[in-house]
């Protein structure tokens, strides 16, 4: 442990050259961790024909350095060339920490990379801190380790996990969980172009067809969310939720039960298997408030819960509770709001 510790790395996810929000959130967090450790924050940015402005964006959010790896074989994304490039980079530069977004890509790439490097990996972290760890079983103390905090057992417990083997310490973090810092357009960093060594062994898979649509809604950036749950009752009655959202200038969210019932699209799902949101105002309508749902919305500024069951768990995390029927309360809210503005 006498060696100088490595830097904090952030894997930058892009689609069509545009950086995904989660990666910028991780750059923000990575910057913070790097400052605590007294090391640099560095981005690893892979793709083909990546834009200069994207690289600048990484500096603006706090990266000291960007490792840029460009190759035709990195587009579209397939796992083996990406894993190979990252493993090669890690072996040479020995980072202390690597952060991946807990997205589809990050959650298949992280384990592949960690397995090859024989590193520990913790999925879906919701908080990251630097602290010492005393392993009482093996009577060893580790200085300045990454505390990897995540929900487990379906969100019923929160576990703090530490990687005790050699660095890097690798984690994935869910989108929307870490706070995005403000961009400082004056900031600059160092660009390191890396020549990838992708061989025929990594190009065995090919993408025949790729169909992708932009999301109907991006709840992560929403300031006001009106969310409906199973208590709404039917697809027709879900219109009430949409009406309130429209009246307040907000977006429509939903619990898993409402999505599973087919009343609203999965893009609208808030919670552990949906998106994590932190709007100014969250109105939970007919949502009982399972631990999995609450995991995705408790950081909202103000929470209003409307439910006809006074014992619904959602009330325990709400700032305002209305025990009543949605078809009665929601129109009253719309009328009241329209009258005030």
């Amino acid at each position: 442990m006498a060696d100088k510790i490595g830097n904090v790395w952030i894997f930058i996810e892009q689609e069509g050259g545009n950086i995904e929000n989660v990666s910028l959130e991780l750059v923000s967090k990575g910057r913070e961790l790097a400052d605590t450790l007294g090391v640099d924050a560095e981005a690893i940015f892979l793709g083909d024909n990546l834009k200069e402005e994207s690289v600048s964006k990484l500096y603006h959010h706090g990266c000291d350095k960007v490792f840029l790896v460009e190759d035709k074989k990195l587009e579209p994304f397939t796992i083996l060339p990406y894993a190979k490039c990252i493993v090669d980079l890690v072996k040479v530069n020995k980072p202390n920490i690597i952060l991946f977004g807990a997205t589809n890509k990050g959650r298949e790439l992280g384990p592949r990379v960690a397995s090859e490097l024989l590193c520990g990996l913790t999925a879906d972290c919701t908080e990251l801190e630097i602290d010492d760890f005393e392993d009482r079983v093996n009577k060893k103390t580790y200085k300045n380790k990454l505390m990897q905090i995540r929900p487990a057992f379906g969100g019923n417990i929160i576990a703090t996990i530490v990687n005790t083997w050699e660095d890097p310490q690798i984690v994935t973090v869910r989108p929307g969980v870490m706070k995005l810092n403000d961009a400082d357009t004056g900031k600059k960093g160092a660009l390191v172009k890396v020549e990838p060594k992708i061989t025929s062994k990594e190009t065995v898979m090919s993408v025949i067809e790729r169909v992708r649509k932009e999301k109907d809604v991006d709840l992560q950036g929403a300031q006001i969310i009106v969310a409906g749950g199973y208590g709404v009752g039917s697809k027709e009655k879900f219109q009430l939720i949409k009406d309130l959202a429209e009246a307040l200038g907000g977006d429509v969210g939903a619990s898993r039960a409402a999505v599973d019932a087919g009343w609203v699209d999965h893009d609208h799902q808030v919670g552990q298997t949906g998106v994590t949101v932190r709007p100014k105002l969250y109105i939970a309508c007919g949502i009982s408030g399972s631990i999995q749902h609450r995991a995705g919305m408790t950081d909202s500024g103000k929470i209003i819960a409307i439910n006809n069951d006074p014992d619904a768990p959602i009330f325990s995390c709400a700032h305002y509770g209305i025990v009543g029927e949605l078809h009665d309360v929601i129109p009253k809210m719309i009328t009241a709001f329209k009258a005030k503005v």
Binding site: A159, T160, R294
Partner: peptide
């Protein structure tokens, strides 16, 4: 490589 440092029950801050 990973060790569990601690486990906490989820407490909802009222």
């Amino acid at each position: 490589p990973t060790k569990v440092k601690k486990i906490q029950s989820v407490v909802l801050t009222g």
